[in-house]
Computed example of a mutant assay.
Amino acid sequence: MPVRHGLLALLSTGPRHGYQLRIEFEASTGATWPLNIGQVYTTLSRLERDGLVKPGESDEQGRVVYMITEAGREETARWFSTPVVHSDRPRDELVIKLAMAVAARNVDVAEVIHRQRTATMRALQQLTMAKRAATAGAAQRLVLDSMIFQAEAEQRWLDHCEAVLEEER
């Protein structure tokens, strides 16, 4: 639940209204995971329901400012102290696609790999340019570095897939 915990982490440094949370979340992640303002307020409602945040006074523009509760601080500390395990991550669509392409037997798997490699290279180039142009701090750089490393790992995995399929021929 990265949005839920991300908002709690931001609130742990001080009260904010939804728009501020959206802007700071996007800035912290290098705008790689844009948030819909509706998603922010829906998440805040759930956090309030769960006793992790509470609404405070409205600001001069009538926006409700939210504050983290003690239970919210405990939840944030638990999140930061708990490693992310692979089974907690969503299924990898590319892995599923290639496995199904091989199983289907009537799909040109080499073409599927080629198209993915091209798309991944394009994404890698865009991420590298974004990293060069980035002016934000360490948080944005870490996010971009992670995405670059993931794209590089995907390229290596695609190479491996080609080698395995070549062995099977």
Rank of each mutant, 00 (worst) to 15 (best):
F149E: 07
A133T: 01
M121H: 09
T118S: 12
A27R: 13
E24P: 01
L47P: 08
R169N: 09
V85P: 00
M67A: 09
G62P: 02
S12F: 07
S146A: 14
V84S: 03
H160E: 08
T13F: 15
R91A: 12
E154K: 13
K131V: 03
I96W: 01
A27L: 09
G137Y: 00
A104G: 07
L8H: 02
T118I: 09
L21M: 03
F149A: 13
T42I: 11
N36S: 14
A71W: 02
T32N: 11
H5R: 11
A119W: 06
V164F: 09
M1Q: 05
N36H: 14
A71P: 03
L52W: 06
D145L: 10
V84R: 07
L158H: 05
K131P: 03
A9K: 15
D108T: 04
F25C: 05
H160W: 09
S81A: 15
E57S: 10
A77L: 14
R122D: 07
P90L: 10
V40A: 12
V53D: 00
V112T: 00
A103F: 01
L11A: 10
N36L: 12
F80G: 07
V40W: 06
A123C: 09
M100Q: 10
V85D: 10
V164I: 13
Q125F: 14
L21W: 00
H5V: 08
L21P: 01
H86P: 06
S12E: 14
V53P: 03
H114A: 14
A136Q: 01
L35E: 11
R156E: 06
Y66N: 04
E24H: 08
V95L: 12
L124K: 04
E48I: 02
W79K: 11
L127T: 04
L44Y: 03
Q150K: 08
E70N: 08
V53E: 01
V85S: 09
P83C: 05
A110E: 02
S12Q: 06
T42M: 14
E75H: 07
S45M: 11
H17Y: 13
A31P: 00
E74G: 05
T120W: 03
N106K: 14
V102M: 15
L44K: 05
I113C: 00
R22N: 07
E93D: 02
A101K: 03
S146M: 09
V143F: 07
A103G: 05
S28D: 10
L52H: 03
V164H: 11
R141Y: 03
A163E: 11
R156H: 07
G30Y: 01
W33P: 01
V107Y: 07
L47S: 08
M121V: 00
T82N: 12
V84D: 00
M147A: 06
S146I: 13
G14A: 13
S12Y: 05
S12T: 00
V85C: 01
G137S: 04
R22K: 15
L124R: 05
A163V: 04
W157V: 13
N106V: 09
E152Q: 15
C161W: 12
V64A: 02
Q20W: 02
R105A: 06
T135K: 06
A104H: 07
A139F: 00
R141T: 12
E93L: 11
Q150C: 03
G6L: 11
F25Y: 11
T69C: 09
V84E: 04
P34A: 06
Q20V: 05
V3A: 10
L158F: 10
D50A: 12
L144G: 08
A119N: 10
